[in-house]
Nucleic acid binder design. Structure first.
Lengths: 190, 190
DNA sequence: CAATTCATTGAATTTATATTCAATATAATA
DNA sequence: TATTATATTGAATATAAATTCAATGAATTG
């Protein structure tokens, strides 16, 4: 690939990263194109050279975001509780370093719980349901005796709600001390 | 009070309730005056008869919201862990019935973690820090041996993040099954 | 180095939404 | 019932933000 194309790709990535950060922090509406442009260090006009519209930029983030979490849920899990331990650890401990992927979790959750802008987006989200597979996995854990009794759906909501609520705080204010992921897993642990 | 004044008060309350619901659901920017007016069943123009501006309406909600949570934190607590049990139970189990107060928790948390619109609002929020008192209380619990070891601030973040993350989901989709509040308290329990 | 293509800007333009306002309906009061 | 005050509307107006565009600068290519 030519240097120019690489540059362009890089620039698009920078914009996506800035967008992700701001969308998490302020939400879609409150995030102004100007904010994103400023964070990347470019003019507003130029941003439209890279993305057709604010909404297309948002949609592209969603497309990227759908794969990560979905892949994670696909993994052939060893032991259910262990899986939740890994997920919790991964998300909470990576919010500072490997920011993009970790922030993506927070982002997708917000998107998922938002009456979405366009039909386009709604369609994309059909593919994205982590609650169903989570409940299944919890059931398995309950059979094995490693996960506590109780409605698997309610447990799934408790686990993801907690992870996301904590992750959101950490994403917004990076200097906060990070809770131990095992504390969260104790929500599920027998 | 005359009937008219009561009516007016009632109407203002209806608007505040609709605003609260929508602000939680969509955030400040994405909530249009039109949305609020529609939810209350009045014209956009009329809403401005009751509230000077969208921002004033938002500020009034914040003023209301500051007292509830702060009062709750003021209580002379019996046993620390018991206090957290009560809070968790109260918030999670009231999101469906006594909606206003429970939603207020979610709302105030969102406001707290948002670079706020006006100076006015920032000033009001100075009064609103539940993390500090929570950490104190956790320390006490640790001394008494009912709360697990670990950084009290990190534990406070874990507790509130979880409560708020779960509450947000329940507020957005009322038909979700409600997790058992004890599961969340297990984040703190020794 | 001339020509071409792409990156970039800042200033229009368009669009969405908040806010104001003059006019009308409805309720309270004398 | 007539008068006054308040509630209500829908149509202007103002404002802020998204999007377009013509012009300029910088890199690439022959």
């Amino acid at each position: 690939m030519s240097t120019r194309e690489q540059q362009k790709e890089q620039r698009r990535m920078d914009i996506l990263a800035a967008g992700l950060d701001l969308f998490i922090r302020k939400g879609y509406s409150a995030t102004k194109i100007k904010d994103i442009a400023e964070q990347v260090g470019m003019s507003v006009g130029l941003l439209f050279h890279y993305f057709e519209s604010k909404e297309k930029l948002y949609e592209e983030l969603i497309s990227i975001g759908i794969d990560g979490p979905r892949d994670m849920m696909k993994l052939e899990h060893t032991e259910p509780l262990e899986f939740f331990q890994n997920v919790a650890k991964y998300i909470l401990y990576n919010l500072k370093e490997e920011t993009f992927t970790a922030k993506m979790f927070v982002f997708m959750w917000q998107v998922y719980f938002t009456e979405s802008v366009s039909e386009e987006i709604k369609r994309k989200l059909k593919d994205f349901d982590i609650y169903q597979p989570t409940a299944e996995l919890i059931k398995k854990g309950q059979e094995k005796g490693t996960i506590r009794e109780g409605d698997p759906n309610a447990l799934a909501i408790a686990f993801w709600g907690s992870i996301q609520g904590i992750a959101l705080q950490l994403a917004l204010i990076p200097e906060l001390p990070c809770p131990d992921s095992e504390w969260i897993v104790d929500i599920l642990r027998k």
